[in-house]
Amino acid sequence: MCIKDVLFELSRLDGPAGFENKITDYIIELTLDFVDEAKKDEMGNLILFKKGNKNGEKILLEAHVDEIGLVISKRIEGNFMAFSTDGGVDPKILPGQRVRFTNRKGERIKGVVGYLSPHFRRNVEKLRMDDLFIDFGIQDIEIEVGDVGVIDVEPVELNGDLVSGKAFDNRASCAILIDLLRRLKNVVLNLDLYALFAVREEFGSSGAVGAVYGIRPNCAIVFDVTHADVKDPTLSDVRLGKGPVFSHGTVVDGELLREFEEIANSSGIPFQREAVPGRSGTDTDLIQLVRDGVKTMLISIPLRYMHTPTEVLSLKDLNLTVRLMTEFLMRKG
């Protein structure tokens, strides 16, 4: 499968924070022939291991698999349900959306987000979550408090190499790691390579820490997304299609950063820079603190409209990142 097909299949799967099993199971299915070991830990993190030909250093590649979602909080009456958010969902994107929830039997149940029609709203106030509800259409629907769901949308190809869909944050990074492992299938490295597909990033990055503690890597390269094409004078200028983004800041190891910039420059791989003066809002923030500290590098994929069902990215950036990581690992190993 090409990287676009992998991304689209990952986008179609539902895996809000804390409910990522469908995603990690699918990744195991795709990568089992590429690695020496695949296991899940007690948190649900998926850890893939590719053994090197000698006792070299341990390099960790990490991407979170979860997405933002919705959770049923109570039955209002009949087929109407109140709901809350699982992760950073903006209420403004929800009115009129189709949604799908997974019940205790594993069945997908579809509904719509209801909101009082504008014909009956006398004044326009700030939208609140308690203004919204899920309409499942019939009263005896098998949905319970605690069932989780996502916005019901299909990934699509746009013009050029741009694509749009839900959960590209952070299934784009997952697709990169899967494609990288595929390319390295018949390559024996002089290092031990770990790929961590971490859970619960959208709810405080609680998933990755325990897995990294157990792996005890010499360094960790974290993959996530970052805001692109945003007109904000306080943000770095990041564009779609201009290559992966290297974070510059306190959470990133300076030596690793310089190494990646040298590899990119010598290989003719375009890249972008982003200032991250404090916390990055990614798993990087906690991974660097594990045990006696982990050297970390944060590589981000440019993304428009983050945390919406119509996130947009350039496939060119994904392929450039795979090429960059292939160069990095081949030089290391």
Rank of each mutant, 00 (worst) to 15 (best):
I3T: 11
E9F: 00
P16A: 08
A17M: 10
A17I: 06
K22H: 11
I23Y: 02
L30H: 02
T31C: 14
T31E: 03
L32K: 15
M43F: 11
G44W: 00
G44D: 07
N45C: 10
L46H: 07
K50I: 04
K51A: 10
N53P: 13
K54Y: 13
L60R: 11
E62V: 13
L70N: 06
L70S: 05
V71N: 01
S73L: 05
S73P: 08
I76N: 14
G78W: 00
G78V: 08
N79R: 13
A82I: 03
A82L: 03
D86T: 14
P91K: 09
K92N: 15
F101D: 04
E107N: 14
I109D: 01
I109A: 04
V112Y: 06
V113A: 04
R121S: 13
R122V: 12
I134E: 04
G137N: 09
D140M: 07
E142A: 11
V145I: 11
V145A: 06
I151H: 09
I151E: 04
D152V: 03
P155D: 05
V163Q: 01
V163H: 02
V163E: 01
A167C: 10
N170T: 02
S173C: 08
A175C: 08
L177M: 15
R182T: 05
L189K: 11
D192W: 04
D192I: 02
Y194A: 05
A195Q: 03
A195H: 04
V199E: 04
R200S: 13
E202F: 01
E202K: 09
S205P: 14
V209T: 14
A211Q: 09
G214I: 07
I221T: 12
V225N: 08
T226V: 00
A228F: 00
P233M: 10
V238A: 05
K242G: 00
G243F: 02
D253N: 14
L256W: 02
L256T: 09
L257V: 07
L257Y: 10
E259A: 10
E261S: 13
N265M: 10
S266L: 01
P270M: 00
F271R: 10
Q272D: 03
S280F: 03
D283V: 08
T284I: 03
I287V: 15
T296L: 07
L298G: 09
S300D: 00
I301H: 05
P302M: 00
L303S: 12
R304Y: 03
T308Y: 06
P309I: 03
V312C: 12
L313M: 11
L318K: 05
N319M: 06
R323C: 06
L324M: 09
M325K: 09
T326Q: 14
E327H: 14
R331F: 04
